Amino acid sequence: MTKLKVEHLDFSIDKTQILKAIDLNIQKGEFVGLVGPNGCGKSTLLKNIYRIYQPDHGKIYLGGQLVDQVNDKAFAKKMAVMVQENTVEFDLTVIDMVMLGRYAHKRLLQDSSEKDRAIAEKYLDEVGLKGYEERSFLSLSGGEKQRVLLARALSQEAELIVLDEPTNHLDIKYQYQIMNILKRQDMTVFTSVHDLNIAALYCDRIVVLKKGKLVKIGTPEEVITPEMIRYLYGIDSEVHMSETTGRPQIQFLPNFDL
Rank of each mutant, 00 (worst) to 15 (best):
P55N: 06
D186W: 00
E133F: 03
A104T: 08
Q27R: 15
K42S: 10
G101Q: 09
N255A: 11
R102K: 11
D68G: 05
V81M: 06
T188I: 06
G218K: 01
H240G: 12
S113R: 09
G143T: 03
E121V: 12
H240C: 13
S136P: 05
Q110N: 05
Q251C: 10
N48D: 03
V32D: 00
L46K: 12
Q177T: 13
D111W: 13
L66W: 04
E126I: 08
F190N: 02
I178A: 05
Q185H: 03
L196T: 03
G128R: 09
I181P: 06
R184C: 05
S112K: 12
K15S: 15
G234E: 00
K42M: 11
D125G: 13
Q17A: 09
L209R: 03
V148E: 05
N48F: 04
D171R: 07
V215N: 01
E165R: 09
K115L: 15
L4C: 02
D164T: 11
F137G: 03
S192M: 02
S242Q: 11
G246I: 11
Y61D: 01
L66R: 15
S139L: 11
E165I: 10
V67A: 04
F90N: 09
A118M: 15
K47W: 10
S113W: 06
E157Q: 13
S242F: 07
Q156R: 07
A199E: 03
A80Q: 04
N86P: 01
C40S: 15
G131T: 00
G64K: 04
E144W: 05
V32R: 00
D204R: 00
M187K: 14
E133K: 03
Y176F: 15
F137K: 01
E243D: 14
L46D: 05
D195E: 14
K77L: 14
Q156C: 07
L160P: 01
A74C: 13
Y132W: 09
D23E: 07
T2V: 15
H169M: 07
Q249F: 14
L24C: 10
L170T: 08
T225D: 05
I161G: 02
E134L: 11
L45F: 09
G64W: 06
P226V: 05
F252R: 04
D56Y: 09
K3Q: 13
K3N: 08
L170H: 04
P220I: 06
Y202W: 01
V6D: 00
A118T: 13
G39V: 07
Q17H: 12
N168V: 14
V208L: 03
L92C: 11
Y103W: 12
V81W: 00
G41T: 09
G33P: 00
D91H: 07
K42G: 08
N25K: 14
S113H: 05
L138P: 04
E30G: 03
K3I: 13
E165F: 09
D171F: 11
V189F: 02
G39P: 12
Y132Q: 02
N255V: 09
I13M: 13
D91Q: 06
E30W: 02
P166A: 12
L108D: 10
R247W: 11
F256P: 05
D116S: 10
Y123D: 03
V215Q: 11
K20Q: 13
T16L: 13
S136L: 10
A21N: 15
K73G: 03
E227V: 07
S141A: 06
L160E: 04
V35N: 01
D10I: 08
E144I: 08
I161M: 03
